[in-house]
Amino acid sequence: MQLTIDKRSVVARKGEYLLEVAQRNGIEIPALCHHPAVEPWGGCRLCMVEITHPDWKGWTGLVTACLYPVQDGLIVSTDTKKVHQVRAGVLDLLLARCPGSSLIQNLARQYGIEETSFTPRKAPDLCILCGLCIRICEKIGASAISSIGRGVEKLVSVPYETVATAACVGCLSCANICPTGAIAFSESEHCRTIWSRNFELVRCEECKAVIGTPEQLEHFARRSGLDRSYFTKCDSCRNREAAARFVRVTF
């Protein structure tokens, strides 16, 4: 089907959402809680766009592009006054929540906000509650973290806000996907720590480079159906070994 985004005609398939179509066509729409690896969620409200349709008799609506299904003939505007107002409002609020986040500062600046017009949160952290960490953790099959509480009290944590349970495999996916770097972890010689839990480290059998935690390698071996022996060496050592093997069989 055919739709118009910012006066450009673009093609979309049924079942797609506006945001992916726009991104595919190089049309930029800001989003904080969106990641192609997980289901769209609609929490950050930054990807608001204004839509209308020739059949709608002039009616226009503000919708989140990440969740709005494409429709033939839809006319989408990504930078109207209304869109700008809502996005600026959302960023102003987020800046009050996380004044220290450079990601939010930069985005806010793009919308003309240098400093929040609201009261900054007391003792702010970097978490914008975009939920990406929770959704990715569920996606990899661990579901070790969740949101706790609701409203302004809401936070992301492990059960009972104590130490990660056995569900956590220490893969760091949550920390890696976090857009603001709000999830703390550390790695020393023998130990990786995330969500207050210490994980042993598995090292490459050859070069001793860190390749993961025992739980992580076990988990990914199980979920991929590959033998655990696939997960024993780093890519560089494997690569060198394979080259030598090729030479042996080709000469």
Binding site: N176, K233, D235, C237
Partner: peptide
């Protein structure tokens, strides 16, 4: 891609 790096460990040829 979420940079979990599991593909880099799983490839038997390190490619």
């Amino acid at each position: 891609c979420i940079r979990c790096l599991m593909c880099t460990i799983a490839c038997p040829f390190g490619n």
